[in-house]
Write a protein that binds this DNA or RNA. Structure first.
Lengths: 238, 238
DNA sequence: ATTTTTAGTTAGATAGTCTAACTAAAGTTA
DNA sequence: TAACTTTAGTTAGACTATCTAACTAAAAAT
């Protein structure tokens, strides 16, 4: 007895096809074109049939977004793993570059991830696939800083010099990740993450076009600064 | 003879009211609720009447977005001008804090500005009100760096050490702003802008909630770093 | 006083989300 | 195998959106 019935397999195939068609529409016609009806047409079925698979438009959108997170996560992990476990610097740089490469190669998808923003922590139920996928994505970066911290701790600010309110948040977060990083190292992690991800956000949302068409050099400089903060020697790509 | 006829005045009032109602809907019911019909209902007129004022939904959205840019610009300028012209440090910090204050106080609006992103440089016609408002917004920050550069130049990288492709873009941009900043100073401007704006982008798009509910301390640290890059002595708010 | 312009109206074409009621096929069980 | 249940699909339709067309009434211009 196979654990998945034939029916279940077909169902999974259809679910996958729906998301694939949605993505194709996103790429070819933009986010507004990703409608239940358009997907159904493309698949040669009637509109309401799609509701057998996703309860409503929002749920479909979330599933597609989760796919994007997962694909991005896999690519970052793959890039990271082109270097042996000990090579923290190369692993980190590779995965960061993979992040940007994906974002640039899949602009509509990356924009989509931002534009339908993680509805503030409180809103999204913490066990939804989207939330999970988002966490696992962030984890790729976090894990590497944790690993680095364990083997080759980077410089951190003195905890008592950080504003008390901020300190408490860092302590809470440190607890939340099982003390894998102490609060002051979590602060460095956050700072790095904001730099990296914030820059990509601006690039992909076309907020840098006024001055740049090619943002890669700025991104590399960002990576150089990241290395600085983490006491790693920057190395150019290639 | 008044230069604006009575009719024109009424028209401007209605245009303003449409945008105000749109904004109210955005705040109270979210971006999806900002529809031509809902606005018309709220104003007690029939749907198609709105088309006398805005040719289509997109044009209305653009006008509202331009309003947001303008309001934000005004607030930043006002904050800047609470300090006398010579006080570069205080003026810059005040306007940056005003930027974040507006973003946090008007989250839906700020999100909206990002989420309906400046359609890449090529797309948007350069004389549209939205594009203009966006430029004027960026100008608030740029102008201050220009002023600072003229009176108290900040450290810059050596131009020949930047990647050639990047150098060319910076040269083009420098030309575009009438050489108000040389390319290497434009590079510093860009770096600062990305830090500042990128961080806000992440905060407002709920990408930092996983660790922080109060991002202010991180923002202040960002300002501290900005001051460092610009050879200014950071000063806390208040 | 007549004409033109403008701001509004209703009716309707088209396209979306989503529900309800039904059908046919596939799987399950007596 | 026959009857039953579950599932994936169907069509019809209620509701809402954008936007066009054709019309009306009021205001402005001549």
């Amino acid at each position: 007895m196979s654990p998945v019935s034939r029916r279940e397999k077909l169902r999974q195939d259809t679910l996958r096809e729906i998301r694939a068609v949605a993505r194709e529409l996103l790429r070819s016609e933009g986010p507004a074109a990703v409608t239940i009806n358009a997907i159904a047409r493309q698949m040669g079925m009637s509109g309401p049939a799609v509701y057998r698979y996703y309860a409503n438009h929002e749920e479909l959108i979330e599933a597609v977004t989760a796919d994007f997170y997962r694909e991005l996560t896999v690519e970052m992990e793959a890039a990271r793993d082109t270097h042996p476990p000990g090579e923290h610097r190369d692993r980190l740089l590779s995965s960061c570059r993979a992040l940007r490469a994906w974002a640039v190669r899949h602009r509509p998808e990356f924009r989509w991830v931002f534009a339908s923003p993680v509805p503030s922590r409180a809103a999204l139920q913490p066990d939804s696939p989207l939330h999970l996928a988002g966490c696992e994505f962030g984890q790729v970066f976090l894990d590497q800083l944790v690993e680095l911290w364990k083997t080759r701790p980077f410089p951190v600010p003195e905890l008592h010099r950080l504003p008390p309110a901020h300190r408490e948040q860092l302590q809470a977060y440190s607890r939340e990740i099982g003390h894998a990083l102490p609060p002051e190292a979590a602060h460095v992690f956050l700072t790095c993450w904001i730099r990296l991800y914030g820059m990509l956000c601006m690039e992909v949302l076309n907020q840098l076009d006024f001055a740049c068409s090619d943002v890669e050099p700025l991104f590399e400089e960002c990576l150089r600064e990241l290395c600085g903060m983490l006491a790693l020697a920057y190395a150019p790509p290639g």
